[in-house]
Design a binder for these strands. Structure first.
Lengths: 129, 129
DNA sequence: GTTGACTCTATACTTGGTATAGACTTTACA
DNA sequence: TGTAAAGTCTATACCAAGTATAGAGTCAAC
């Protein structure tokens, strides 16, 4: 199949597919006589794997490591498990940060609920501190 | 004061200060004979305001709007309040997304708690789906 | 007078794509 | 068979919010 079809089947944009190829996530595929990229079902599977990983927030470098690990079926999978675990720790940490931020924002919002003049605005006053 | 002192007092790096100037957040300051930037207490206050806004996650464009609004003390402050409110909505939304993600990651992590071979790894199997 | 600390500008790099321009290939239809 | 439309190609620039560097100039102390 050509890149347009792969794009539709995978839900990744054409530019993104070419971008992944340039980043060595997706290996260079065969070309038609007119130099069009020709993909097969295995490219689609890899692309779906990449998309799944991206939706979990894994970076391109991490995905590259996962793809590399997948190519060594007899090695230990501990690096995979560690990656997911560490990522979960990071996400947990980020959630805590955002909850803190939300609290600050809500305190700030309640400092000026009515419509005042700029010089009397409670929000701006808090921002000055 | 020169940029190094402003950097220490504000906690912003020297490059960041120059970057804010280029972005028109911090207005171009006076220069010494040797072309060094010379700042005063008002520059420091503005920089602290910017830093406070950035710590809340406001973008440079939004901060520019806030600084602009601050310069019109008699206008209505509703745009300020709306900005903070909308930002809080966005943060709330982002927290929900990350909590969803955390759940997925924790399910994934529990699919392979022991150390197996890559081809038997429960995490990788989930990632394939 | 020279060393070291400080500052200057300009430029490149980061992440994960997205958006062009300009050229080429292929397909559809009259 | 000709041509128009759709698809694809490469290369390049752009986004946000800085960070890092090179190479040059300035300033203060010894």
């Amino acid at each position: 199949m050509k890149i347009g079809e792969l794009s539709k089947k995978s839900g990744c944009s054409i530019q993104t597919i070419r971008f992944y190829e340039k980043q060595d996530l997706l290996e260079a595929c065969n070309r038609s006589e007119g130099n069009y990229r020709i993909y097969d079902a295995s490219s689609l599977r890899t692309l779906q794997f990449i998309k799944q990983c991206r939706s979990l927030g894994l970076t391109i470098i991490e995905i590259k490591q996962l793809l590399d690990t997948k190519n060594n079926p007899d090695k230990s999978c501990s690096s995979v498990n560690n990656l997911i675990h560490q990522h979960m720790v990071d996400v947990t940490h980020r959630i805590a940060e955002l909850q803190e931020l939300k609290l600050t924002l809500s305190e700030m919002a309640s400092a000026c609920t009515d419509n005042r003049k700029v010089k009397e605005c409670g929000v701006l006053q808090l921002l000055e501190e």
